[in-house]
Amino acid sequence: MTVSVSWYLILGAILFTIGVVGLLVRRNVLIMLMCIELMLNASNLTFVSFARQHQDVGGQADVFFVLVVAAAEVVVGLAIIVSIFRKRLGATADDLSSMKG
């Protein structure tokens, strides 16, 4: 049994779904951030799989962009979380609603 491209795509889809569900159900901000990372990497996996399937390097090149964005996002996101921790005791997302419209 060979491992075809669709297996990788299915794995990517599962990882992405876990990320989405995690983001929606967990309240800890750190965990939510990790879920976002999971979604980003799931899409990276999908990119690479398609690149392999179509013999096109473009997809692999995109991954580098996503990695850079993810890194930047982690930097900003963690900085925000740290500053929230300094002001409050916990980091529960539902306690933070000062951006209410």
Partner: peptide
């Protein structure tokens, strides 16, 4: 009313 400020609710809307 949509802009509740709760991150998870807004993420749900986006999803």
């Amino acid at each position: 009313r949509i802009a509740s400020g709760f991150v998870r609710r807004e993420a749900l809307i986006i999803a």
